[in-house]
């Protein structure tokens, strides 16, 4: 593995956790894809498969009180932030037991108890929100941070530049994590950006930035821990570009005309789960029996989540106009 594992406790237990969490996201989303074909899940469904090392690695560095703002490809982030698989699955079924009461769906998972603030489906729309969450913490003198995940497509939006400038200018405790999977839907990075080195853009705003192999969960964790420590130490934002790849289509409607099958296969060879498992086996940290145990635990959790979603109930249509404004005002 690359990075600096010396700063991460790569105990057997920690290795098990990293593999468990990556596999958990993978299996959860494979189940989602299956349920989509069965029309249990509808609307847009954006899978994170291939990119699991980013959410899993970054979240190792976060505390429960830290806030997360993510994108419409956020099932993995929600799972990692502690949102129960049950309520995520129920949300995707559109049931009122879902983490957003069935009002949000796959793209708008929310759970304030776990400080998970969406689920934002406007590209770059979450960056100003993250800056604001951090501003409130600064004003209230709380020492927690906000982490904002977004794709490299967001870099083309004005809100990316406005928010980075504001966060640096006002010294806001935000960890910006760019999940660079090389394609904004079907548009390759070099077809949309004059400067394709994204971490260099952050540096323009005087934000310390780092690019890391986003297929290497340990490298991501090391970089994230370093960034979070620096944010706490300096009160300033940090930027982390994780170079990764989406194995599946952009959404369930994407025929993937914009990239070669060989390219996808080459990235799968470097897949974060395959790679970490191979390393952990060779290092003697994990064995096949561990993987079997993990898979069994995950299968149980997912079966339970699907049953929970299936057993969930539809919000009465009489409640249609709820959650537009407060039910009680002063």
């Amino acid at each position: 593995m690359s990075g600096n594992p010396a700063k991460v406790r790569l105990s057997r237990e920690h290795c098990r956790t990293l593999l468990h969490q990556m596999l958990r996201i993978r299996r959860f989303e494979e189940k989602c894809a299956e349920l989509y074909t069965q029309e249990k899940i509808r609307g847009f469904l954006h899978l994170y498969i291939g990119e699991e090392a980013v959410a899993v690695g970054v979240m190792q560095a976060l505390a429960p009180e830290d806030a997360v703002v993510a994108t419409y490809r956020e099932h993995g982030h929600a799972l990692m932030k502690g949102v129960p698989a049950d309520t995520i699955m129920a949300e995707m079924f559109g049931k009122q037991e879902g983490c957003s009461g069935g009002r949000g769906g796959s793209m708008h998972l929310f759970d304030t108890e776990h400080r998970f603030y969406g689920g934002n489906a406007i590209v770059a729309g979450g960056l100003p929100i993250a800056a604001g969450l951090a501003l409130a913490d600064t004003l209230a003198d709380r020492s927690r941070i906000t982490t904002c995940f977004f794709g490299e497509g967001a870099v083309a939006e004005g809100e990316f530049h406005e928010a980075l400038n504001l966060a640096a200018l006002w010294q806001l405790p935000v960890l910006f994590v760019c999940e660079n999977n090389l394609y904004a839907m079907g548009t390759a990075l070099d077809l949309s950006e004059s400067q394709t080195d994204i971490s260099a853009k952050a540096a323009c705003y005087d934000i310390a930035s780092e690019a890391v192999d986003g297929m290497d969960v340990v490298a991501v964790e090391v970089a994230a821990r370093r960034a979070v420590a620096a944010i706490h130490e300096t009160g300033r934002p940090r930027f982390l570009e994780c170079r990764t790849y989406r194995f599946r289509a952009h959404s369930m409607y994407d025929p993937q005309l914009y990239r070669a099958k060989e390219e996808v296969e080459a990235w799968k060879e470097r897949g974060p789960i395959r790679r970490f498992k191979t390393w952990a086996f060779e290092a003697g940290e994990l064995r096949e029996s561990d993987v079997a145990e993990i898979e069994a635990e995950i299968a149980r959790e997912i079966d339970q989540a699907v049953a929970f979603a299936q057993d969930g109930t539809w919000e009465p249509v009489a409640d249609l106009t709820r959650h537009v404004g407060a039910e009680r005002r002063p």
Binding site: Y117, L127, P128, G132, L135, A136, L139, E159, A163
Partner: peptide, 13 residues
């Protein structure tokens, strides 16, 4: 967009 969005995020927090 950034300062209005930051206001929204701050209000959420």
């Amino acid at each position: 967009s950034a300062f209005t969005g930051a206001g929204i995020g701050a209000a959420m927090n």
